[in-house]
Design a protein around this nucleic acid. Sequence first.
DNA 1: GAAACATATGAGCATTTGTTCATATGTTCA
DNA 2: TGAACATATGAACAAATGCTCATATGTTTC
Lengths: 115, 115
Amino acid sequence: MTECTHDHKHPDLREIDRLMPDVDSLYDLSEVFRVFGDSTRIRILYALFESEMCVCDIAALLGMTQSAVSHQLRILKDAKLVRFRREGKSVFYALDDHHVRLILSMGMEHLSHTR
Amino acid sequence: MTECTHDHKHPDLREIDRLMPDVDSLYDLSEVFRVFGDSTRIRILYALFESEMCVCDIAALLGMTQSAVSHQLRILKDAKLVRFRREGKSVFYALDDHHVRLILSMGMEHLSHTR
DNA sequence: GAAACATATGAGCATTTGTTCATATGTTCA
DNA sequence: TGAACATATGAACAAATGCTCATATGTTTC
């Protein structure tokens, strides 16, 4: 490969670099979306749209093992997308804040615009 | 592991299953977010916030090889997140629609709420 | 047509990721 | 305290992912 010889209009790269969020913020942002980027986790989030649920019910609803669901819930919890409360032997999970719903519906809207 | 013995309040799983989008839609939705879930692609998208850019400029801006950027642009293009136009030897990429900006700002907003 | 430039793409490789299995932790009740 | 239940977690493994390198495709200019 050879360097770009700039024989056309180019933006001021330094100016653009100045305007962009710093690399660390963008990395954190990509991590947020990476959490949404798995169908199991998306299904869990949509299940929680209706009501809070315990782990075994989520597993039954999705037809997955309790272990697999629990592993994914941990990722969702770490990303602050769900919160939980213990009630006896069960642990109930729920969507953490309204941003989750907003982000999901934005994604759905994008989908509907691309077909 | 043993089955859940339902000794507490449980939601109607069949009703919840009925209300949820079908599995295929949720898979497609997760694929959209998976595309956002990589810091290189996020950096490319933010670079394009300011103006359309050719591949070599994006590569220079991000300090990456032309090949790496081109591979990621293909993924962004397939997901309809960017569009492109050829002008001579160069190919200029731009954000495809306003949903991209909305989704990114939703993600940023979520981030700012979690610290 | 040939050379130079800009971009696209396939193969290979190291890393990451999601699931399974086994087991640990935590809670209730007899 | 011990047994049963509900959830969490570490290790292992197969599959997916992102980058590099080499090279192909496409465009302009001589």
